[in-house]
Design a protein around this nucleic acid. Structure first.
Lengths: 265, 265
DNA sequence: GAAAAACTGTGATTCAAGTCAAATCATCTA
DNA sequence: TAGATGATTTGACTTGAATCACAGTTTTTC
């Protein structure tokens, strides 16, 4: 059985080494005790700060918890804080005029969001919904601005993070612009494997963050098509579904090829 | 005849007022005389600097000219400068494994690019090609970094600009994720109208920056489909093509509706 | 200004993904 | 654990964009 290896924590442990996870453990503990220093340090943007500065930052943080399915904020709402995902994961999406949702990002522990609202009076450009129980740390706009002016290093880090996000969006855009749905699904599975996968003897086991419908909303296709394509991949021996919430990648090579050739069968 | 009203300069004049254009004229003049102060000021990021700082910035700039069709840089190449479009326009695209190009951005006079390469040693994430004769001002990575540390205000401006670009990408993503091709074309025309359109008595006249094939590559569809959809819109009285490089929007209302309902005919 | 080259439009056909409908499977709850 | 509920899979059919082919048009080049 795979079930014992499958919770999110050991998965990232396996793939990325333990440093992140260790910090996470501390962070969780520190949160229970009311402090935020470690929580803040987990955010790349604040990595350059020393302990004193960190605790100053931490003192401006407000924590909130959400249940699975709760909306953190709605597209169009004013938002005056930088939000850090302390525990859990969320999806960020825009609703199209015909009612579908286009998922733009999946954010996990340590990611931050709301950066575009920190300077001008922009409203949220997407809706954010908890995929599981979530704890967030919110950092007010004013505090963040003051911090930036004091510590240009943080500004530079922020620019780097935004640049990364841009690069990621550009890639998603390229892959949506490409016709083949097979290619998109393969690329999505590769991405999930990195972010939600655990190495097991047979291959990489992915703990899916979204339902079939969620995947469809991320790829701009229908849930039926997702089902059919996955079935086909399973028949072809490329993947094996484990229940409906897990997928085991058996043939990484073929998946990669499919993702790259874009015009696959 | 529309031809007299159609060059890019008066177009933006009509829609956005003359301040930008005036600066542009100065900038062009200043470039001829070897200075760059005005050129630099046109870039929002540097707007907060005073004259002395501006001329310091300008002293680090290298100018280059390109012919229509020239490649400014290729996806994957190392790039160590921030590039400002001084005159002209360019397209930025990624090449998909099957040889198609997915256009990500059209940059015009005053836009900057290459920001993601300013900190880490990232390579260019897209290829940039001149759509007409282009003059660029390049600003070396080292100078820019030094400037950021000295002037946190510039860092903040940069973050704002990047946030805007992210918002734009997110919108493009949403529209590609949506199925209807009619919707995408309508949305593209609305976007072009704002950026490349002039108000004329009959409606808005767009000077197309790209060929049918270019439009197709921006929308992730084929050039034949673009042709057919435009023909249909013309038959429906929504637009009128003026030669093959211009489109006159007659019925903005219908266009808007089509762009929004996403499931149009 | 004529020839060449590149771009554009249109028809016929194909095919992949969408839609609608129903059956099966998984999971949650009492 | 059984039943209820919701999610997933599968099938049949439809639709709309891609592909292929070619004619017409515009733009470039010499």
């Amino acid at each position: 059985m795979y079930t014992q290896r499958v919770s999110l924590e050991p998965i990232r442990y396996v793939l990325y080494g333990i440093t992140e996870r260790k910090t996470m453990a501390n962070c969780r503990r520190c949160a229970i005790h009311g402090g935020h220093a470690f929580c803040v340090r987990r955010v790349p943007v604040f990595a350059a700060l020393d302990d004193k500065e960190l605790s100053h930052v931490a003192s401006h943080i407000h924590q909130r918890t959400y249940q699975k399915g709760d909306i953190l904020f709605l597209e169009g709402e004013p938002l005056h804080a930088l939000i850090i995902i302390h525990t859990g994961s969320v999806k960020a999406y825009k609703t199209t005029p015909d009612g579908r949702e286009q998922i733009l990002y999946l954010f996990q522990t340590g990611d931050f969001l709301g950066e575009q609202n920190l300077f001008e009076n922009h409203n949220a450009s997407y809706t954010v919904e908890a995929l599981e129980n979530v704890i967030t740390c919110a950092f007010s706009r004013d505090s963040f601005q003051a911090l930036l002016l004091e510590h240009p290093v943080i500004a530079i880090k922020t620019i780097e993070e935004l640049s990364k996000r841009i690069a990621q969006l550009e890639n998603t855009l390229k892959s949506l612009g490409v016709r083949s749905v097979d290619g998109r699904i393969a690329a999505l599975l590769m991405d999930y494997a990195e972010r939600f996968g655990a190495i097991v003897p047979e291959g990489v086991l992915i703990q899916l963050p979204l339902s079939r419908e969620g995947i469809a909303n991320q790829l701009g296709i229908t849930r039926e098509t997702v089902s059919r394509k996955l079935s086909r991949m399973e028949n072809g021996g490329v993947i094996r579904t484990v229940g409906s919430k897990r997928i085991l990648i058996l043939d990484r090579q073929t998946l990669e090829t499919t993702a790259n050739q874009m015009n696959a069968i």
